[in-house]
Simulated scan of single mutants.
Amino acid sequence: MDDVRSRYRRIFDDGSNTERMVFFSDAVFAIAMTLLVIDLQVPEDHSGTSGEVLLDSIPGFVAYALSFTIIAINWVGHYRRYRVIKNHDGRLLLLNLVLLFFVALLPFPTSLLSSYSGEAPAVVLYAFVVGLLSMLQWASWQYAYRKGFVGTEVDEGLFRWVRLNQLTTPIVFWASIPIALLWDGQAAMWSWFALFPVNFVAGQLSKRY
């Protein structure tokens, strides 16, 4: 006979669908994207011209566009994967909540990067959080597949290809951390463009699956 804890987990933690999880996640992603724009403000000091204000705002616009794109990519990936993740348990819920924690946190390192562009601490924090988002997506996908929560239309080859694509962002962004610490923050930020060729290589590797 099951003990009370086992029955509790089976009845309250396990679920046959993920709709509530997805709806809640969508809300957090949307709020995080909206919060990014708060940092873009016209200064109260009107001593400069509008052109000067726009020039001074370029780092903020760049940081906003970058983080909006990163959150959007993470949301699209999350949406697509949870179309085939049919069930859940307490651990998958926890992994998803940890992911949302860092999604909601991203506006802060974005603001820091905008205000202190090129400084190593700002670059390191930003790169760490962005890489961690993808790693948490990877961990959720890995866990869901191994637990049998993913629909049967996803075979082993497709599972491994999705998992590979989730590793490109951590590889590029976390590789920039020692560049920022040991060399230069601006150089570390430029290294993020390596994501394009790395994604291209990952796409070529998909042919092996």
Rank of each mutant, 00 (worst) to 15 (best):
residue 89 D to E: 08
residue 78 H to W: 00
residue 106 L to S: 07
residue 66 L to M: 12
residue 122 A to S: 08
residue 64 Y to N: 02
residue 91 R to L: 11
residue 133 L to S: 01
residue 78 H to L: 05
residue 143 Y to L: 12
residue 67 S to G: 11
residue 115 S to H: 15
residue 109 P to D: 00
residue 120 A to N: 08
residue 63 A to V: 06
residue 79 Y to M: 06
residue 88 H to F: 08
residue 112 L to M: 13
residue 142 Q to H: 13
residue 114 S to L: 07
residue 69 T to P: 01
residue 133 L to W: 00
residue 64 Y to M: 06
residue 91 R to T: 13
residue 89 D to I: 03
residue 66 L to F: 14
residue 117 S to G: 06
residue 62 V to W: 00
residue 117 S to M: 05
residue 79 Y to S: 11
residue 118 G to C: 09
residue 122 A to W: 01
residue 80 R to M: 11
residue 123 V to E: 06
residue 101 F to E: 08
residue 63 A to K: 02
residue 94 L to F: 14
residue 137 Q to D: 06
residue 85 I to V: 08
residue 138 W to F: 15
residue 139 A to N: 08
residue 102 F to R: 04
residue 129 V to D: 03
residue 133 L to P: 01
residue 87 N to R: 13
residue 95 L to G: 08
residue 65 A to S: 06
residue 143 Y to E: 07
residue 122 A to L: 04
residue 97 L to G: 12
residue 65 A to D: 01
residue 121 P to S: 11
residue 88 H to I: 15
residue 75 W to Q: 03
residue 110 T to G: 03
residue 100 L to G: 04
residue 111 S to E: 13
residue 103 V to Q: 03
residue 99 L to Q: 08
residue 107 P to H: 11
residue 119 E to H: 12
residue 123 V to H: 03
residue 88 H to M: 15
residue 94 L to D: 13
residue 80 R to T: 08
residue 131 G to I: 00
residue 78 H to C: 05
residue 77 G to H: 06
residue 123 V to I: 07
residue 144 A to P: 05
residue 84 V to S: 02
residue 94 L to S: 15
residue 136 L to R: 00
residue 96 N to I: 07
residue 73 I to K: 08
residue 131 G to W: 00
residue 83 R to T: 15
residue 62 V to E: 01
residue 95 L to H: 10
residue 89 D to C: 08
residue 109 P to V: 09
residue 97 L to R: 14
residue 144 A to F: 10
residue 64 Y to L: 05
residue 125 L to K: 09
residue 69 T to R: 07
residue 74 N to S: 10
residue 108 F to K: 12
residue 82 Y to K: 04
residue 83 R to D: 15
residue 142 Q to L: 11
residue 102 F to P: 00
